[in-house]
Amino acid sequence: MSKAQETVLEINLGALSHNFNYLKSKLNPNTKFLAVVKAFAYGSDAIRIAEHLEELGVDYFAVAYVKEGVLLRENGIKTPILVLHPQPVNFKSLIDHCLEPSLYNAKVLKEFIDVAEKQNQKNYPVHIKFNTGLNRLGFWESDVDYISSQLNATNSVKVKSVFSHLAASEDINEKSFTENQINTFQSISKHIEKSLGFKPWLHICNTSGVLNYPEAHFDMVRCGIGLYGFGNSGEEDKKLKPISSLKSIISQIHKIEKDETVGYNRGYKASGFEKTATIPIGHADGISRIYGNGNGFVIINNQKAPIVGNVCMDMLMVNVTNIECKEGDEVIVFDSNNKASDLAESAHTISYEILTAISNRVKRLYIK
C-alpha cells in the first residue's frame, strides 16, 4: 500500500468481502441478506460497494431516498432495492426505476397505491414498516386492519415484506426493551399475515441484531455499519475489518512562540515554543469543527497529534512539537489500526457520523 501524497480515502474491497462473509456466517442458509448502502455506502462509494456486493451474492440493497436508488440503477445495479424513506413526490421515479418503497403511514400508503394504479401496475412489491419502539417511522399495530383493507382493495401493489427497526440492539442493558420490540413485531406479523391471507417476509435485525439476537433473524436481515467494519462492541470490532482509510499529508510545519495563536478566532494559544503541522483536510471534507481544539487527533509517524484551534474549511492544524516529522509526511486520520470509532469517541460522537460525513471531493482509491 503506497503512502498518501494527497488527501485520499482508500476503500478496501477485500475487507468488505470479509465483513460480508462473517455476517452471513451468522445466518441460517435460508435467511436473506440485505446490504444497506445509503449515504454513499456510509461515506465510501455506493456504486463500487454495491457492484462488489452483487458479485458476492447479496440478496437486497437498501437506501434512504429514491435518488440514491436511481443512482444505483443508472450505474447497472440489478439487485432489488428497498427505499427506506421515500417521499410521495418521487413515487413515479421510484416505479420507473424498479425500486421498492417502505410504506410507513396512511398518507404514503394511499398515495403510493394511487400512483401505482395510475401507472397500471400489478402486484408492485412494497414493504410495510411498523414502529415497535424506535418512534421514528412506522405504522402502529392498531393500524393493521386499516392497512389490510387498503391493500386488499387493490391489485396494484402486493406486500413483499413487513419490517421494523431495533432501537438499542447493541446495548446489553436494553435487552428487555429489545426483546419486547421483537415480541411486538411477531405479534404484528401474525396479525397482518392473517389479515392479508399470506405470509410476507419478515425482518427486524440490523448489524447488532444479527450478532446479538439470532432468534430474530426471520426471513431477512439488514446490515449497514457491520459491512463497513464496525460491530458496535469491542469484541465484534475485532472480527470485522474497517474498509476505509482516510489519509492525508503535512503541507507545512510552523514553529510558534509562547502566546502565539493558531487558526481562526485565535482558537489555540501556544503555552511555549511549539511546532504545528497544517494538513489539507477540513470541515468541507467531513472533519467537523467538533474535532477542533484538542477534541480530535490524527496519527503521524505512529504518534497521536492533537488537533489545535478550529478546524478550517479546507485545512486543520495539529500539534507536532514532540513528533519527528517533515513536510510531505503521511497523516492517518483513520484506518484499520487507528479506527474511526476512536476518533469519533474523542469528540463524543459515533463512527457512523464521521464515516458518512466524508465529502465526495475526497479522492477515492480502491484496494482489492
Rank of each mutant, 00 (worst) to 15 (best):
Q5P: 00
T7P: 02
V8R: 03
L13H: 00
H18D: 11
H18L: 07
F20P: 01
S25G: 15
K26P: 05
N30W: 14
N30A: 12
T31R: 03
K32C: 05
K38P: 12
A39W: 06
R48W: 10
L56W: 08
Y60C: 08
F61V: 10
L71D: 08
L72D: 01
L72V: 07
R73W: 04
E74Q: 12
N75C: 11
I77Y: 04
P80C: 02
Q87F: 13
H97F: 15
L99D: 03
V108D: 04
E111A: 04
I113Y: 03
E117P: 01
P125H: 01
P125T: 00
I128K: 02
K129P: 06
G133E: 03
G133D: 02
L137S: 06
G138K: 00
F139M: 05
E141Q: 11
S142H: 08
D145V: 07
Y146F: 15
S148A: 14
S148P: 09
Q150G: 09
Q150V: 07
A153C: 15
T154A: 03
N155I: 07
S156G: 05
V162P: 02
H165E: 04
L166S: 03
A168E: 07
D171P: 03
F177T: 08
N183E: 12
S189Q: 14
S189R: 07
H191D: 06
P200V: 00
T207V: 15
G209F: 06
D219Y: 04
R222K: 13
C223K: 00
Y228I: 08
K238Y: 10
P242S: 14
I256H: 13
T261H: 06
G272N: 07
K275R: 09
P280F: 15
I281G: 00
H283M: 14
A284L: 14
A284N: 11
G286N: 03
N301W: 05
N301M: 08
K304Q: 15
I307T: 12
V311K: 01
C312D: 14
L316I: 02
V320S: 02
I323E: 04
I323R: 06
E324H: 11
K326G: 08
D329I: 11
V331K: 11
D342W: 02
L343E: 03
A344Q: 14
E345K: 14
I350H: 14
S359Q: 06
V362N: 14
K363P: 03
I367G: 13
